[in-house]
């Protein structure tokens, strides 16, 4: 199972919401779809879910074009939009029953499927409640349950963690881990990058409709590893240490912060190791020497400029 987005463009009048984006991901991968507001994430996801048609380009899911064969593509995709279900007059169970019918799941199987999905998303206890009476977290679970009814191999989730409390977020993360473990390909957008970094093994970063970076998280971090931040806590006054550090090659800056020194280093892990050896050789007694590893958040801040169209 491979999802291939190829030269996708979507224009709204003069606005280029998505401008020639290409990337691929496969079964079992959880891909973070990252970008500032208005970057084109939702538009791309709506095209992948067959809700919108691209101006140009295409996306294929297991070889099925979302443009040319949307009816077939819909069988392969589960879409969780950023808008939550908010009907006033329908219970959770009836809502899921409607979508199960809409996906053509027949009677003996339908009850089992709905029951299974309710259990998986922990909705069994509230299945008779009406949708509008649910909390945001619970509505998000209903949305996920709906997307899972036809057991799609691909899940597209637009800001599923937005507005959720910490507990609901942790629970959602666990659900996603299980789903990824089942071999589903998941494309997920979120503004909470630390959350994404924990569950994603790949990321796609876009801004102003253009693709900035795409690849496995580790690859992205190593691509972005020309600079390191090292935090040193000496067992004495940091003043002499700062002076010595600034004289060393590759050290761009060294700033005392409380009892610590924050050092910006241009170079690889080897350079950091050389600095540590040099400091010990000069007789400094260090309580702590740690490298702050770049995360998705750092990469995002480095590659994007926060511009919107």
């Amino acid at each position: 199972m491979k999802i291939e987005v190829s030269h996708l463009k979507k224009y709204f009048g003069a606005t280029r919401a998505v401008d020639d984006i290409s990337f691929t991901f496969a079964a079992g991968q959880v891909v973070g779809f990252v970008g500032p507001n208005g970057a084109g994430k939702t538009t791309t996801m709506r095209v992948l879910s067959t809700l919108d048609e691209p101006t140009e380009g295409d996306a294929t899911i297991d070889g099925v074009s979302v443009v040319e064969e949307p009816e077939q593509a819909r069988k392969l995709v589960g879409y969780v939009p950023d808008a939550l279900p908010g009907h006033r007059d329908i219970s959770v169970h009836d809502y899921l029953d409607f979508f199960a019918r809409a996906y053509g799941i027949k009677k003996p199987k339908r009850s089992l499927v709905i029951g299974g999905v309710e259990e998986f998303t922990n909705l069994t206890g509230i299945r008779e409640k009406t949708l509008h009476a649910l909390s945001k977290g619970m509505k998000q679970r209903v949305s996920l349950a709906r997307a899972l009814l036809h057991d799609p191999p691909v899940l597209i989730m637009d800001e599923p963690a937005a507005g959720l409390d910490p507990r609901a977020r942790v629970e959602l993360r666990e659900l996603l881990r299980v789903l990824a473990g089942q071999g589903k390909a998941i494309l997920i957008s979120s503004h909470i990058l630390t959350e994404l970094a924990e569950i994603c093994n790949a990321a796609v970063i876009i801004e102003q409709g253009k693709l900035l970076m795409a690849g496995a998280i580790n690859e992205l971090i190593s691509t972005d590893a020309t600079r390191r931040t090292v935090i040193i806590r000496p067992l004495g006054s940091p003043e002499g240490l700062v002076r010595d550090l600034l004289e060393m090659p590759h050290v761009e800056s060294a700033n005392p912060a409380g009892g610590e020194v924050v050092v910006e280093v241009s170079g690889s892990d080897e350079v950091c190791s050389d600095i540590l050896i040099a400091l010990i050789q000069r007789g400094y007694r260090l309580a702590e020497f740690k490298q702050h590893r770049a995360g998705l958040e750092d990469i995002f801040m480095n590659v994007t400029r926060g511009e919107v169209q």
């Binding site: 809700l51 009816e71 879409y79 939009p81 808008a83 279900p85 908010g86 809409a102 996906y103």
Partner: peptide
């Protein structure tokens, strides 16, 4: 027009 019902994502 909106994501309210998502009829158009299903195979109906």
């Amino acid at each position: 027009d909106t994501n309210v019902d998502l009829l158009f994502v299903t195979t109906i």
